[in-house]
């Protein structure tokens, strides 16, 4: 555990002593803020119109009308930005030769992998935590339901954790950071839209493709529904990514 933390601390320090973390977080917050603002503005204008009609005014729901689309937007931003956060984790070490220091230290490969994973999770948590501060406005001028919002954020975090594990895997494959980012992005996007293929599939494949699609599992969470099926999906996605990373590193050294 101590070893995992040593690696994680070093990675976090690297993120924050170079522009990477700041740029990723800043751009993420600007985009999230913009989406939040537009959604809120639209909700507001709807509310003014609906105010004429008490029946429709009852139907206005800030969670459904602001947060559900916002979470979808954030998930897309994460899909675009997390590969940029993970691309350097192993690629840079391989390129600069510092992996030789790590692998000749009394550390296990799993400790190194988990340490790096943890560091990226911390940055993800910082991104989501800071974007959560936007909700102050929603709470100040409306009455959204907190558990539903928290559920959405948890969904984003779990999804991000799965994305990061995927990114870590592709980073362990290549010395080239750009290649690592592109492969991660391509793989994630493919998993995202896998349910499209389910429309034309039949029988068991329909179910399998639907189950594998990232999007399918996220939809419920944005509505405030927490299903163990989705939880298991994200956790096993992340675990599989980490397991593959571990195998790649071990097998490379045995070649």
């Amino acid at each position: 555990m101590r070893n995992i933390w040593s690696i994680a601390k070093k990675e976090i320090k690297t993120y924050f002593s170079s522009p990477i973390a700041y740029v990723v977080i800043a751009v993420f917050l600007v985009l999230t803020g913009f989406f939040f603002y537009s959604a809120l503005w639209w909700f507001n204008s709807q509310a003014i119109q609906m105010a004429q009609n008490p029946y429709y005014a009852q139907q206005m729901n800030i969670n459904q009308m602001v947060y559900t689309p916002l979470f979808h937007n954030i998930s897309i931003i994460l899909l675009l930005m997390l590969p940029l956060l993970t691309m350097r984790l192993f690629s840079e070490e391989m390129k600069s030769g510092t992996d030789e220091l790590l692998y000749t230290s009394p550390l296990s490969v799993s400790q190194i992998v988990l340490g790096k994973y943890l560091a990226a999770l911390v940055v993800l948590a910082a991104m989501l935590g800071l974007s959560g501060s936007l909700s102050i406005f929603a709470f100040a001028f409306g009455n959204p339901e907190l558990p539903q919002i928290l559920n959405g954020y948890m969904g984003l975090f779990l999804m991000g954790a799965a994305f990061i594990a995927t990114g870590l895997f592709f980073s362990s494959l290549t010395k080239n950071q750009v290649v690592s980012a592109i492969l991660t992005f391509g793989a994630l996007l493919l998993f995202w839209i896998l349910n499209w293929a389910a429309y034309s599939a039949s029988g068991i494949w329909k179910g399998v493709l639907n189950y594998l699609s990232i999007f399918q599992h996220f939809d419920d969470m944005t509505r405030g529904i927490l299903d163990t099926k989705d939880l298991v999906y994200y956790l096993s996605f992340a675990f599989f990514g980490l397991f593959l990373t571990h195998s790649v590193i071990l097998s490379r050294r045995w070649r």
Binding site: K10, S17, S96, T98, L101
Partner: peptide
């Protein structure tokens, strides 16, 4: 161990 390429983190 000092590898041929010194393993340094420039930042």
């Amino acid at each position: 161990y000092l590898p041929e390429v010194v393993p340094l983190y420039p930042e």
